[in-house]
Amino acid sequence: MNAPERNLKLSLRRTGELAGIVRVNEEIKAIVATAFRINLMALNAIFLAKRAGNAALGFGVLSNELRRFAQDLTRHMSSLRDMTSGSVGSVTGVVQQQRNSAILAEAIRQSGDGVPGVREARKRGATRLAEQQAKLRALDLRLRAAVEETQQLVELGGVLARSAKIEAAYGGGFSPALMQVSTDFAEVIAQIKRSLEVLGKERLVKD
């Protein structure tokens, strides 16, 4: 194996982390799009409840709550996105440091350990790498905590969607239309739950 091939192999070790960040970003984008959809659906549901009058008062209140939920969810996702943008820099820092350290190690291997200055250079590199890895680990913990918090919020969204379904049953002549809206709510929230499960499984740092 020649030097460029060795270097490529070394840098490939971290591409898993970068691919992980891409997957996290894609899930976040999907959830943001869904939150936008819930917001619009809730607006429509509010108008529908107004048309239904007294029979859909409860449904109207829940639609308002669902709209607020969609806005909260968008805020959560935006902070998650900020975290992942920061993590691209951290992962890249680790990749660069690992690559440099590995190439330097190869140079030292070819030269022999007796070359002056190599021990210090190795030590400096290892310290820098440990610092960057610690930074990445802390970011990973924050990301996981934020995903868990969002999962709790989405649980609440699920409860709201189920309650809307119950209220829809009391909607008189508007009941079928309200039922359809509440079923749609439940479906999109289930979709968000699935995306959050994927997010929860992603790790910026492999254990």
Binding site: I103, L104, A107, Q110, S111, G112, V115, P116, G117
Partner: peptide
């Protein structure tokens, strides 16, 4: 880099 570093180190103190 590894090839240049080791060639240099063989003839001169890189520090």
């Amino acid at each position: 880099f590894p090839a240049v570093f080791s060639a240099l180190s063989a003839e001169c103190d890189p520090t």
